[in-house]
Design a protein around this nucleic acid. Sequence first.
DNA 1: ACCTGAACACCGTTCAAGT
DNA 2: ACCTGAACACCGTTCAAGT
Lengths: 235, 235
Amino acid sequence: MATPRGSAAGGRQRRRPTKRGVILSEQLIIDTAMRVLRRDGAEGLSVRRLGQALGADPTALYRYFSSIEDLKLAIADELIDRALRGSEITGDWKRDLRNFALRAHESYLADPHAAVLAASRVTGRPHEAKIMEQLLGILRTAGFSDEVAAAVYMMMVDLVLAYAALDAAALALPADIRATDVARWRDVYAALPPTDFPNIAAVADRLLAIGGRSSFPMAVDVMLEGMASLLITTG
Amino acid sequence: MATPRGSAAGGRQRRRPTKRGVILSEQLIIDTAMRVLRRDGAEGLSVRRLGQALGADPTALYRYFSSIEDLKLAIADELIDRALRGSEITGDWKRDLRNFALRAHESYLADPHAAVLAASRVTGRPHEAKIMEQLLGILRTAGFSDEVAAAVYMMMVDLVLAYAALDAAALALPADIRATDVARWRDVYAALPPTDFPNIAAVADRLLAIGGRSSFPMAVDVMLEGMASLLITTG
DNA sequence: ACCTGAACACCGTTCAAGT
DNA sequence: ACCTGAACACCGTTCAAGT
């Protein structure tokens, strides 16, 4: 769990530079760790390698984070913060929510290895007051009751985070495995006797055409349609 | 990625018993690993500990799996197989799909630590021919076109797996952290000035009432409503 | 044919010592 | 006050040696 990071507030203290001349800070460590993740993948993020990339003794980390797990949580928080930031409001609730969902998902996937870490970081933490206020505003203005708005808000955030984690895991797989995926599916479909599996046989082409594309955009649209029904029936 | 496990087909070979008298097999290793996961959590599953729990030299593992990663994939596969098994068909497509989704989610969460492992195992592998055939049958009988049925099928499976992974991660957290979660949220809401955050202030009670409950059942219902709309507009 | 155990190259973390 | 480095208790994996 997160320590009260950043409680030694911004820039107050005078830090001694590292042997290699670096002034450490939480933010520098997080940024460097994300660089290591992009470069070496999730496996490559170790205390020793991070020290190397940072230009400091590996154990200097422990002055800023209580454990490597704590650092990973900080990375996850950073990612979620980034994902939930900056949407625009047009007044069209479906369009605004759709926009939010797609942008958040996309921002997550820009760092797939970090996103996989964040997968074990759970669901909408209460930090995102601003986006939370915005989304709730959109829902209430659209006519959802307070009770339904609260539930729908949680559902939307969970949907985005859950899907982002799933799709990030797919992107984080080694390229050669991802490449053979579609071919493997084709072989499997072809091997099934059409008399026993008529439905699969009927739609096999369609399934292959989907390939590795994420079903997230469709899920969002279907969800928004469902919410529109909800709005009519429950007010 | 998975080796061609089980290719040395069932019970054919005569295996030498272990020093402690155990006859090893893939299935025994998977079952024992899941027991270790339940007992010690994800951190506790190591080659050495598994060897200990198994009653064998740790390195005996490598005769059955090419790496610990390969074993984890096998566990993930086992879990997904189990989750996607055994649904019943009543003829009411919404009810049948709802049933499938809730049962699969529940089965996943019965082993949260294993489920977190499976989170990085990506999306509907093509092994589940039987449930796939069933679900596609439900969708096509309901009137979805082949193209939409294929897309909706993928979406449903992804939704279940993504949500299951998210909720499993929450369940896998240490109990003491989960316990303080609601209290932490209350403090955060209370600290926000209602004039700047009127929407949050208005629904804070509702959000707290949701507590740590999963939004998955609601997501499924909303999704099914959206699919009903889709059925009307696209046939 | 399959299990064993030493060995190797790594981990994360602690703590006394430096400056 | 904060960085360093030796030390400790672990990892996953390989491979020659056993039976």
